[in-house]
Amino acid sequence: MSISNEALQKLVQEIETQAIQSQQQISLVRSQVASKQREIRILELTSKEVGDLPSGTNIYEGVGKMFVFSPTSEVDQRLKTETSDLKSDVENLGKKLQYLETTHKNSREHIDQIFNSGGRA
């Protein structure tokens, strides 16, 4: 059984569009993962520095154009919470990346299969 040229062309075009969209989203997700990993590293370094401070040290955090006193324990807790949130985000982005890579791979395989079969279904 043979597929008409118009139907075959439309099918290939749809699969190619899906592959291109997947590739674009893969690039976007990879840049998001890299950005979040940098933020995690910064938060971990900051947490280490705060942990190394003597117990009675005053810590001031920037809020807009002013600085506000924050207890060391609150700052450390906030840094740990932000780090765990970012790690969760990276894990979710990793799952999304895996899905997108699978979708892209499958799209490419379908296109190759169509061309190798010569338009016969």
Rank of each mutant, 00 (worst) to 15 (best):
S70G: 00
R78Q: 01
F69E: 13
E74M: 10
L79Q: 02
L79I: 01
D76F: 06
V68I: 13
V63M: 10
Q77N: 11
E61D: 02
S47F: 02
M66F: 02
P54A: 12
E61P: 01
S88W: 02
V68S: 04
G64L: 01
S47R: 05
K87C: 03
E49T: 07
L86I: 07
D85C: 08
S70H: 12
V68L: 09
M66W: 00
S84R: 12
E74P: 00
V50S: 00
P54H: 12
T57S: 13
R78L: 03
V75E: 01
Q77S: 14
G51K: 07
K65R: 11
F67D: 02
G64E: 04
T46M: 08
K65L: 11
S47A: 13
S55E: 15
D52N: 14
D76A: 14
D89S: 15
V68K: 09
Y60Q: 12
T57N: 06
D85F: 08
T46E: 09
F67V: 08
Y60M: 10
S70I: 09
S70C: 09
I59F: 08
D76G: 05
S70K: 15
K65E: 14
Y60G: 02
D85T: 12
K80P: 04
L79W: 00
D52E: 15
N58D: 15
S47L: 07
L86C: 06
F67C: 00
S88L: 13
E49A: 10
K87S: 06
S73M: 09
F69D: 08
D52W: 00
K80L: 09
T72V: 12
V50C: 04
S70W: 04
D89P: 00
F67S: 11
S55M: 11
D76K: 11
E82R: 04
S84Q: 14
E49I: 04
T72L: 10
V75W: 02
T57A: 10
Q77W: 02
P71A: 11
K48F: 07
I59R: 04
K65D: 15
G56L: 12
Q77D: 11
V75Q: 03
Y60I: 00
P71C: 06
N58C: 08
S73R: 14
Q77V: 05
D76L: 13
G51D: 08
E61I: 11
L79T: 00
L53C: 06
P71D: 14
G51C: 00
S88E: 14
T83I: 07
E61T: 08
K87D: 05
D76C: 03
E74S: 13
T46H: 05
T46R: 07
T72W: 02
R78A: 03
F67N: 09
F67K: 14
T83D: 05
D52Y: 02
G51E: 08
S47P: 01
K48L: 10
I59Q: 05
T72A: 13
V75F: 05
T72F: 00
G62W: 01
I59M: 09
V50A: 05
G64H: 04
T83G: 03
T83P: 00
T46W: 04
D85G: 08
S55H: 10
D76S: 14
T83N: 06
S88Q: 14
N58H: 13
T83Y: 05
L53E: 07
V50R: 01
T46A: 10
L86W: 01
P71K: 13
T81I: 07
D52V: 01
Y60A: 08
D89M: 12
D89Q: 15
T57H: 07
K80W: 04
K80A: 12
G51N: 10
